[in-house]
């Protein structure tokens, strides 16, 4: 299992051919209290960089882009009732959707945790 990051503050946790996407602790801190999450539809085919979801805080709405191309296999429906999970537990309970990764080669183009940490210094 490896976790990779985008410069846009999404994380992608890779387990086999499935990636779990959410936003980083840094991003949730910057956004403030999340009040609403618009989830993608299961089965939706995404290209890397496509808008996959929207998270809204009180003062901002932010698109969540697909870190890699693939098909949405599962979404975190718990967020509909408890969007605050993204704040309290962004990397576990606050995951947003899972994607069947179409091209594993794209993973290499993402940031590793050190590179991402540098970015958010």
């Amino acid at each position: 299992m490896t976790t990779k990051f985008t410069p846009d503050h999404e994380y992608l946790r890779v387990e086999g051919s499935i990636g779990t996407v959410g936003i980083t602790p840094y991003a949730q801190e910057a956004l403030g209290d999340i009040v609403f999450v618009e989830l993608p539809e299961v089965g939706k085919v995404l290209k890397k960089g496509d808008e996959a979801a929207v998270v809204e805080s009180v003062k901002a709405a932010s698109e969540i882009y697909a870190p890699v191309s693939g098909t949405v296999t599962e979404v975190n429906t718990t967020l509909s009732g408890e969007p605050g999970l993204i704040n309290s537990d962004p990397e576990a309970g606050g995951w947003i959707y899972k994607i069947e990764i179409a091209d594993a080669g794209e993973i290499d183009g993402l940031l590793d945790s050190d590179a991402y940490a540098q970015l958010t210094l």
Partner: peptide, 12 residues
Amino acid sequence: MSMNNQGRPTGT
């Protein structure tokens, strides 16, 4: 992810 507004502090 895009942040199209600067995160404003919220809370009371």
